[in-house]
Structures are given as structure tokens and as C-alpha cells.
């Protein structure tokens, strides 16, 4: 089996402070492997049998290499960094386009294409589904368990109000939302090995992508403005014993 795991580097959100104006202070916050990406990789490691291959892939700047090193420590066999100045500012669509190109050119034979359910910074949870759509593969998002059978996988997806067990064909896309609390730790030997492993770099040309398919140019979402939204209770109460009066009171407030 060949497991391709797409991961992301994110700021350690547990260490992000908020200044007096309610803005996030990102400066100086260490970058880590996204916890959901780690769940996906852990799942791949738990599925891995002798002869199987785990390939970790991320799109990002040079510093994202440390997230890939982390993947190698946890159990990935190979690591690819998709990096190009032109990739900057990519939205869900442009990101999915770039990742799909990697699968098409370098990992078309993947037995399973894996993601964390979402990234702790972007939180869209759209990339896995969009990659599946672009590749024309089956998608199984929000998995809480993935098991390998001879020629297919069995996934359990948790949608909050229902759990769905499916038979996922080879080559499917899955996103993983849960990990093991007793998750593994690398050995020192593995840590040293990972620190010396090669990280393969691929740029836009290597992926065969045009300038207008990637990054800001290839994005369909444009951020016009972003504002801080604070919801504060007004502390006004109506007892509701007279529904008509209460409705009028509410109407006035709105």
C-alpha cells in the first residue's frame, strides 16, 4: 500500500495571545505540524505493514520543512515540499489544484490519499473534498477510524449526529478527525534518522502547473476586508409572559 498524507504547518494555536484590541499576536509563535495532520499521519502509521510506503507532502515556504521532519519522525518514509513563490496566497481552490497535481504526477498509484479533517489555522475543512473532486475520486471526510482490508478500506465517519461506516475503494480520499490520546513518540534513533533524511522539493514547473492555476492568481476567493466581530450580551431581559409584548420588545432591540 502507498499512503499519501497531505499535511500543513500552522502556528501553535494554543500559544496565540490576543492583544488589547482583540487582534491575534502571531509574532514569535512557534510553528508546528497541524494537530489534525498529525492524526492523519498517525492513522497511516497504524495502517502501515511491511513493504508499505508513507509519503508526507506539504505546500508551503522553506520553513514548512520542519513539519515534514516531524512527519518523518512519526513514521513517514518520504517527504515532499511543494514550494514556489507563485503558491503564496492560495485559497482552497488553488491549494487543491496544486495538491491534485502532485497526486496526478507523482502519486497516481496511491492506495489512500489522507488529510486532517481541517487545518487549525484556516479551519475550512474544504481542501480534502475539493482534491477528491478534482481527481475524480471517492471522498470520506471526518473519519474517526480507517481500517485496511485486502482490496479496500473501511472508514467510519462521524458527522456529529450520525456515524457512517463505508467501504472505501483503493485510491480514495479520506480526512481524519480523531487521533489516539496515547499517540506514539519517536525514538531517539528515529529522530536522528529523520533529521538527516532528504526532503524532496517540487516547484510549480515540476508539478506542471500554469501561473494562473496556483497561489493568489489561481484563487477564486478574494478577501475584501476583515473585521473583528465581538458578540456581547446586552443584558436585557423580557419575561415573555405576554408574547405579543415580548415580540415587540425583541423587534425593537433588533
Amino acid at each position: 500500500m502507498k499512503y499519501v498524507v497531505f499535511v500543513k504547518q500552522v502556528p501553535d494555536t494554543t500559544l496565540i495571545a490576543v492583544d488589547e484590541n482583540g487582534n491575534l499576536i502571531r509574532a514569535g509563535v512557534p510553528s508546528i505540524l497541524d494537530p489534525y495532520s498529525e492524526h492523519a499521519l498517525e492513522t497511516a502509521v497504524s495502517l502501515k505493514k511491511e513493504g508499505d510506503l508513507i509519503v508526507a507532502v506539504t505546500m508551503g515556504p522553506d520553513q514548512a520543512q520542519s513539519a515534514l521532519r516531524r512527519c518523518l519522525e512519526i513514521g513517514a518514509d518520504e517527504a515532499y515540499l511543494l514550494s514556489d513563490r507563485a503558491f503564496a496566497g492560495a485559497d482552497v481552490h488553488a491549494t487543491a489544484r496544486t495538491l491534485s497535481a502532485f497526486v496526478e504526477k507523482f502519486a497516481a498509484d496511491a492506495s489512500l490519499i489522507m488529510f486532517g479533517k481541517q487545518a487549525a489555522d484556516g479551519d475550512t475543512a474544504q481542501v480534502p473534498a475539493e482534491v477528491a473532486e478534482m481527481l475524480g475520486r471517492e471522498q470520506f471526510c471526518y473519519c474517526v477510524s480507517v481500517n485496511a482490508e485486502d482490496d479496500h478500506f473501511v472508514t467510519v465517519q462521524d458527522y456529529g449526529d450520525e456515524r457512517r461506516t463505508c467501504r472505501a475503494p483503493m485510491g480514495s480520499v479520506v480526512s481524519v478527525s480523531e487521533g489516539d490520546i496515547n499517540r506514539r513518540l519517536p525514538s531517539i534513533a528515529r529522530f536522528i534518522e529523520a533529521s538527516e533524511a532528504e526532503i524532496k522539493r517540487l516547484d510549480r514547473i515540476a508539478l506542471g502547473l500554469g501561473n494562473f492555476s496556483v497561489g493568489m492568481n489561481g484563487s477564486r476567493t478574494k478577501i475584501v476586508k476583515s473585521v473583528n466581530v465581538r458578540s456581547e450580551r446586552l443584558g436585557k431581559i423580557t419575561d415573555g409572559s405576554d408574547p405579543v409584548k415580548a415580540a415587540a420588545y425583541l423587534k425593537e432591540l433588533i
Partner: peptide, 17 residues
């Protein structure tokens, strides 16, 4: 012993473990 029979971790959440 060996460097294989060991655990290591450097991210804050791992060091807390």
C-alpha cells in the same frame, strides 16, 4: 539499551506529556 528503545519529543505538548 539502544537509541531505538527510547522516546523523545520537543514540541511543547509532547514535553508536557
Amino acid at each position: 539499551g539502544s537509541l531505538e528503545d527510547s522516546w523523545c519529543g520537543y514540541e511543547l505538548k509532547d514535553r508536557e506529556r
